[in-house]
Design a protein around this nucleic acid. Structure first.
Lengths: 204, 204
DNA sequence: GTCTATAACCTGATAGAC
DNA sequence: GTCTATCAGGTTATAGAC
């Protein structure tokens, strides 16, 4: 009975290309990426990109959809869950989101930049505002603070979580903050952000 | 005695090109911009770009330095001023920064993206962390909260101010938040952010 | 200083051998 | 499926007329 060799990496050519594309697109953006860079990163020939994915554009769309899903997919279920308290949602958002972003620190800036560079492509596709407005999270905020537009709280929460990652190239590469110091700071923020968001929800 | 005609716009060709470059680079980023786009935007011939600026790269560097200066130049003097209180600094930062960014909403994402796409170019040039660490603002925070890394407060303040502008393409173009609603929100935040930052500085 | 024409190079995509 | 070789078109930069 034939079966795969044990210890075989078993990575298909298609997956090799996708993995290389993720890396290069994330680093240089769509416009700054040359298909040759992706082929080289994958250790394969340029012609194979078109064999498997038809065009640079198609390959990018696959990677981009993955990344958008990853960025919003982790926060959406937390905000829409009707069985958790407001406090629990804030703790989960900070904890889970920061943990994921420490593994994918370039994700937020990549997604924001690419949407900025080509908003037509995403018009009416990423319905972030609608998802937020209709979430259980916003309903709970309205009960607690009917005097303030709930978007302020959501944006402040997301800003406290995401902004350090967006500013990381400035802080770390162009500035002089060490990778270790950045990591420590983000670990601390997992506990700090819930404390702070709760504090500002009480502020008058 | 010869003098310039009154009502003459008096915009030099060099300035026309720079103005067009600002617009196109901001919209499409360095890699996504073609020098032809800039020439067309300026209503001039392509050859003039190289006559005045030698290369796309050189022209971009001039625009980029302007933008970096604009983004950090407004906040640096507020944070380093030794004659203002901590509270006053927070109010000035929120008020002045948001007012400037409402006139230049794409500025933060542009600068962050370009530094991300080419960090080598800015290595050890944008000393944001050092400037922050040695500022009077950080000194004042340390007195008030010696138990917390002051960077947490600075990043939270900057995040509350900058993040809405960075997320604007998602909220407005890809999402469904109207331009007017965004503007109103940012006006409200001028007062809300100082209130909130003060609240979280007291949180234990 | 400003233009047209073109050089020199780069990039995405494909043809065709293996 | 994978490779080499190459095409077709686009892009930056420059030469040279005016």
């Amino acid at each position: 009975m034939p079966r795969k060799k044990i210890a075989e990496p078993d990575i298909t050519t298609e997956e090799k290309i996708k993995e290389a594309a993720r890396k290069v697109f994330m680093k240089k953006g769509y416009a700054g990426t040359r298909t040759r860079d992706i082929a080289e990163e994958a250790g394969l020939n340029l012609a194979l990109l078109n064999y498997y994915f038809r065009s640079k554009e198609k390959l990018f769309e696959i990677v981009m959809m993955e990344k958008v899903q990853k960025l919003f997919g982790i926060i959406a279920p937390i905000l829409t869950d009707t069985s958790t308290t407001l406090e629990k949602k804030i703790e989960l958002a900070a904890g889970n989101y920061i943990a994921m972003l420490m593994e994918n620190p370039d994700l937020p800036l990549f997604v924001m930049s690419e949407i900025r560079n080509n908003p037509e492509r995403f018009a009416n596709k990423v319905q972030a505002v609608k998802l937020i407005q209709e979430s259980h999270f916003v309903k709970q905020i309205k009960e607690k603070r009917p005097d303030i537009n709930p978007l302020h709280f959501v944006i402040s929460l997301l800003g406290m979580i995401l902004f350090p990652f967006i500013a990381r190239p400035v802080l770390q590469d162009a500035g002089n903050l060490s990778a270790k110091a950045f990591q420590n700071m983000m670990e601390e923020r997992k506990a700090l952000i819930p404390l702070w968001i709760k504090a500002l929800m009480k502020a008058r």
